[in-house]
Design a protein around this nucleic acid. Structure first.
Lengths: 149, 149
DNA sequence: CAGTATCCCAGTAGATACTG
DNA sequence: CAGTATCTACTGGGATACTG
């Protein structure tokens, strides 16, 4: 995925130095796939819960509550594969398995924390914005010959 | 979808220096929906691109490249609704529309930047971990008498 | 130029049932 | 307990065609 066609003419549309602010982000490259990975419905949840302590499968299932058995398994497997959590199995009866964050997982959680905190801090503002937007939208679509009088 | 029981017991679960990682995150609440929103396939991309400067619809389309017309529209609408980008239309012929980050959008991008940067910085490590994992998985399933040589 | 409207498929997640 | 297997429903998103 690259910008093969920036050629919208010989125009000086990009003043060469316009890339001051951003540029650093621009998940145009492979970082995307990591974001996709961790940006799914459950990964961050699992991460956040494991931040506190090591947990067993059943504990995670009960703690996260809302997650299905299958999705917990899938999520944990992927995180394990990515080196973000580590799975320790004790071959006893009944089985005992523990999940913990790896050092990599901890750095991830740290990096994501600002994001998570932002989300929680601004959720109200966003919902307000939505209400506003919807109200305005209704305003534009609403006055459809309702001049009853 | 709430975490009815963050308490799974009388846990002094966080030992002494479990690093800064404590209970502070836990996207258990409404922050989740915000994360879902921005965590989709295109939002962060759009945000990152708009970090540089205001852009027109077509510019975004060409810059992000890979995004379809439909998804750009959908993404922009949602971001606008959430108060993260602002849409300015100049009713001329042909139409001229510009998109920019709102102040809220800028704070979001800032919050997300650590995350994005982490992703780009660790993508190699992660892919390595994956290769390892796959190799080990193949090892466990593979040794089926395939000692050909 | 900047969209909207449809159609449609692939992938994702939920529920359920079974197992070492 | 800690999974795997399967079946299905839902939806995100691409392709395409049309419009003010």
């Amino acid at each position: 995925m690259q910008n093969s066609s920036v050629e919208h003419g010989p125009g000086p549309s990009v003043p060469a130095g316009a890339l001051t602010t951003g540029t650093m982000y621009a998940p145009t490259c492979r970082g995307r796939e990591v974001l996709d990975r961790v940006g799914d419905k459950w990964s961050l949840q699992v991460l956040a819960v494991l931040a506190d302590r090591t947990m067993r499968f059943g504990e995670l299932r009960r703690t996260i509550d809302g997650i299905s058995q299958r999705m917990l398994t899938v999520t944990l497997r992927t995180l394990e594969r990515d080196g973000i959590v580590i799975r320790t199995m004790y071959p006893v009866m009944p089985p005992h398995v523990e999940y913990a964050l790896t050092p990599l997982g901890k750095t991830l959680l740290e990096a994501a924390s600002a994001f998570i905190i932002w989300a929680e801090a601004h959720v109200d503002l966003i919902e307000e914005a939505r209400a506003d937007y919807d109200a305005r939208a209704a305003d534009e679509a609403g006055p459809e010959g309702f001049r009853t009088s």
